[in-house]
Amino acid sequence: MESSLSFDQARTAALNEVHAAVAAVFPAGYKLADDFVPQLPCTDVSDRPTGQVHASVSFWVDSIDRTRNNAYFDALARWWTDNGWKLEVDDRPKDLFMNARRDDYLMGMQATPEGRLNIGVDSPCAWPDGTPESKS
């Protein structure tokens, strides 16, 4: 097996992507509230743990006008297109949910029934320190 990004590098990259997206999509004054996501283990095709983990980050977007949620989704879709992301799912108007992928990172945004928005990114699988664990 070859080395990959470390967990910390993957998490930093995921955070950078979220911050770039929200800065482009939401008007000044928005606030991000951390929506804790535990470190998620990666599994192989047989659903066995590989020793790698996904770095996931997720935030609630507060201090925005929730009546403009559709416009925020449209702006995020444009930002994705302009920044090399490929839209995978857009469940609007049934559900306010969509996601896109770039370089094995998956970014998604969804709204609760009350209109609160959550945006997050999952990284590709990464070894905790960037190299496979030895099998000694």
Rank of each mutant, 00 (worst) to 15 (best):
R68D: 08
I64L: 05
G51A: 04
S63K: 09
S63H: 12
L76W: 02
A77F: 04
V57S: 02
Y72Q: 08
R78D: 11
R66K: 13
R66L: 15
D65G: 07
R66C: 07
L76Y: 01
T67D: 14
Y72G: 06
A71R: 09
N69G: 04
R78P: 06
A55Y: 00
V53Q: 12
A75T: 14
S63D: 15
L76G: 01
R66G: 10
A75H: 05
Q52C: 02
S56I: 15
D62L: 14
S58I: 00
R68H: 09
V57A: 03
S63R: 10
Y72V: 08
D74R: 10
W60P: 05
I64S: 02
F59G: 03
A75K: 14
A71F: 06
S58N: 12
L76A: 02
S58M: 12
R68S: 13
T67C: 07
S63G: 07
N70Y: 08
V53I: 11
S56F: 14
R68Y: 08
N70W: 06
N69W: 02
R66I: 14
F59K: 07
R78M: 13
D62V: 10
S56N: 13
F73L: 01
Y72A: 04
R68I: 06
D65S: 10
I64G: 02
A55P: 01
Q52K: 09
V57G: 00
S58T: 04
Q52L: 03
R66F: 02
D65P: 05
D62R: 14
F73Y: 00
V61H: 01
S58A: 11
D65C: 08
S56V: 15
D65F: 02
T81H: 11
D65I: 04
G51H: 07
A75Y: 05
F59A: 07
D74L: 12
W80Y: 04
F59Y: 15
A55I: 09
D74M: 12
A77V: 10
V57E: 01
W79Q: 08
V53S: 13
F59T: 04
F59N: 08
V61K: 01
W79A: 05
S56D: 14
N70M: 11
F73M: 00
N70D: 15
W80C: 00
V61R: 01
T81Y: 11
Q52P: 01
R66E: 13
V57H: 01
N69M: 03
V61E: 03
G51E: 08
W60L: 11
A75E: 11
R78Y: 07
V61I: 14
H54Y: 15
V57D: 00
D62F: 09
F73S: 01
A71S: 11
W80H: 02
R78K: 15
W79S: 06
T81G: 12
I64T: 06
S58V: 03
T67L: 12
T81E: 15
D62G: 08
Q52H: 02
I64F: 07
F73R: 01
R78G: 09
S56L: 14
T81I: 13
W80S: 00
A71E: 10
S63Q: 11
A71D: 09
L76T: 01
A77L: 11
D74V: 12
A71V: 11
W60M: 12
D65K: 03
W80D: 00
A77G: 07
T81M: 13
D74H: 10
A55K: 01
D74A: 14
W80T: 00
N69H: 06
S58W: 04
S56C: 12
A71G: 06
A77Q: 09
R68M: 13
